[in-house]
Design a protein around this nucleic acid. Structure first.
Lengths: 240, 240
DNA sequence: GAAAACTTGTAACGAAATGTGCCAGGCCAG
DNA sequence: CTGGCCTGGCACATTTCGTTACAAGTTTTC
């Protein structure tokens, strides 16, 4: 029933992040990797990341800075990896808002236990992440009410949306102008990974188009990116 | 304003628990002490403890046992103190449900940081409001009187609610905008776990809709989330 | 104290939502 | 221009949900 948690491992050293990701996958989690702050931000925007494992010492954007950013803009839990065993570093890390930290070198089994512990705590908290983004979003001739889960036309008439349609539309509206692969959409809508040759998203996009596009044969809002996925192309503005 | 968090320090050694409690008080927290499992249970029963700092190695009742008990019967966060730095011990502690742990000897400042981190997380969990008694909640075109267990329409006419219907509605009103699974609803309304394929909640929701929804075929207040459960979608405000 | 009224859980069936298989047609590389 | 890969959309299978009917338990009424 619960979708498999999706972990993002951020470390500049490939010899660390790749085996670590593999280890997590082998132990029943899903895992993505990022080599630095830029990659990490992109991944978080386009995937449904449930937890970030973050090396504190990285070239380019510092780990602490990324951690601070995550804490300010999301509720995604963070576990820090630190090379030094200094008390001060630990305290700074926790004070900045990390949920836990580990000192390198660490036992992968312990990291796994901590990930599960943090997730267990986080899972009990209903995540207001997306719903908080905006209460009502206007696009094309429509307004999507995120709280009431309703799509309202310019004439004020509500168009009924199924759960999957609503979720898919919400994902698009929160990421306009960004190409989203089928796998990313599947992750963002239902939290699961893609099976081999998964056409579920195609179908949902088709159904969504039938409801929101004036001419479903010539989609204007949700464009197909050949070989890439789908992209929402329209202004999205917040409505009070 | 937030009340000062109340910490319970459980350790069999007086040279540890007393200075520790003093240190916490000096740093803006309230602290109580207990020398063992029996004291600790009594203290938790009679005080509003917000967090427990617990030595894992104690004569009499073991720390782990107390931790497990706390996890099963309360939501109070636990930070474990362990004498050994063994990986396995750490893992066991986290798996048993502790929120964090520290290895002795530890830096008091670090313990303080961790206490604050755990409290910050715990506080963000929307705890079901306690003083719900004597309140009246307005939603849609209705007012639910929690005292009289009555549902009053905008025309002032009371609609009779059965016990289960009232309980279900109250649960929804206390958690608007949150998807509640069938299992959660069953737990919150009648305190029991879900049997295999329990459709009792579906029925209750259906009955509730028939009473509160203007058009039960197109529910506006209680929306169903396909594959997820149900969600109350409407503003809830208190009425004096 | 017994019958009637009401409540609530269980079963069952049809309806709705969603995923999968398939094929025709579109898009791109060579 | 042609073959291969990708997408759109239909039909169908599967899962999940809404509603009704009914039975068992509970409260009320006389």
């Amino acid at each position: 029933m619960e979708p498999t948690p999706h972990i993002l491992v951020v470390d500049d050293e490939r010899e660390i992040r790749e085996p670590l990701a593999k280890y997590l996958v082998k132990n029943g989690l899903r895992a993505s990797i990022a080599a630095g702050g830029v990659d990490a931000r992109k991944e978080i925007k386009t995937s449904a990341i449930d937890l970030v494992v973050l090396d504190i010492m990285m070239p380019g954007e510092d780990g602490l800075s990324l951690c601070r950013h995550l804490r300010e803009t999301t509720d995604i839990p963070v576990i820090l990896l630190t090379a030094m065993a200094e008390d001060t570093d630990r305290v700074v890390g926790l004070e900045i808002g990390a949920d836990d930290y580990l000192t390198k070198p660490f036992n992968p089994r312990e990291l796994l236990a901590r990930i599960k512990a943090v997730l267990r705590r986080a899972r009990s908290v209903p995540r207001p992440r997306e719903a908080m983004e905006g209460e009502r979003l206007r696009f094309g001739g429509w307004v999507l009410d995120m709280n009431r889960r309703e799509l309202i036309g310019n004439d004020g008439v509500a168009a009924p949306l199924s759960t999957a349609e609503f979720k898919l539309l919400a994902v698009f509206l929160q990421r306009p102008g960004i190409v989203l692969s089928r796998e990313q959409l599947l992750d963002l809508t239902s939290g699961r990974g893609a099976e081999v040759f998964d056409r579920a998203i195609d179908n949902q996009v088709s159904r969504l188009r039938r409801k929101v596009e004036a001419d479903p044969k010539n989609p204007v809002l949700v464009k197909t990116v050949w070989g890439g996925g789908y992209m929402f192309t329209a202004e999205v503005e917040q409505v009070s």
